[in-house]
Amino acid sequence: MIDLQKEFIEFHDNIKLDDENQKLRDKREILLKKLKNNISDEAASYTTFNQGSYAMGTGIYPEDEDYDIDVGLKFDINKDDYDDAVEPKKWVRDALDGHTKHVDIKRSCVTVTYQENGKSAYHVDFAVYANDNSDGKMYIAKGKEFSDKEYRYWEESDPQGLIKLIKNKYSGDDAAQFRRTIRYIKKWKTHNFSSVGDSAPTGIALTILAYDSCFSVNKTTDWATKKSVYDDFSALHTCIKNIKSRFSYSWSELAQQMCYKISANLPVAPYSNLFSKMTDKQMDELYSRITNMLSKLDEVKGKTKRSEACTILVELFGEEFPVTVDKSIVGTSESA
């Protein structure tokens, strides 16, 4: 098939959003400063860390939704001293309130939303943790302000352990191909699912599928230069093929029909199934879209014209994928 590595690298440059991004850093720093200056004296001391896809090196530019910055706040508290897990979240909410249009206590974080031209331009999610527990583990504060007591609780969590696992799975250029492949799949998701509702898999669910044996490095050695030559198309193709085969076909009580289903557990606490929020029907729909993607990738393999291969990839990933063409043969022309 046609060598599309240059196109894939350019595509990756077009979609990647990482912690180096100055805009994101600035927004985060402004809020952290506000938090520091305004947090009440009653609040416990805390340290901060970056979590989420930017910290993992798998972030992409959002297509129609706003930028999402994830920050972890580790409070030096023992969860057993805070029967109400929402209390420390209120410290954060109250400190940031009044500075922006929206500060909300959500189930798993405190969200600050910034608006630009009447639209949500970016939001920062602060996850609140208790980090001074008798068992030495870290716990995340769950629940909303007026949730029933049973929905306000501490749950064991290890976001930094997760980042470490993803970052240390491969090293050097192999790790770079791993991250690129995750970004391609996440971009495919953003381009093919609407941002509302739970019908799309989460970015972390796709990341964990790649991490958990669906991805394998695809490279060859150039015998002349002894350098590794990476083949991102083949790495992606294999990863999608493996994800497809992770689905199992079984009866769905809820949908009253046979459905393709998938599960993948978080490799750190709380070890939850990352597809648990999707219904059987939504997973079945995901399966058919993965199948469709695989057949499009197979189609790309069979193309001999660069423009045709790129056109299919634009359909899969959006306009960020470059459309290159073969050398044109202009021939002659006769007009009258």
Binding site: S328, I329, V330, G331, T332, S333, E334, S335, A336
Partner: peptide
């Protein structure tokens, strides 16, 4: 009444 374009020049420019 006619324009016969050759390959010369045009191919290079392309």
């Amino acid at each position: 009444y006619e324009f016969k374009r050759s390959e010369d020049g045009h191919q290079n420019a392309m």
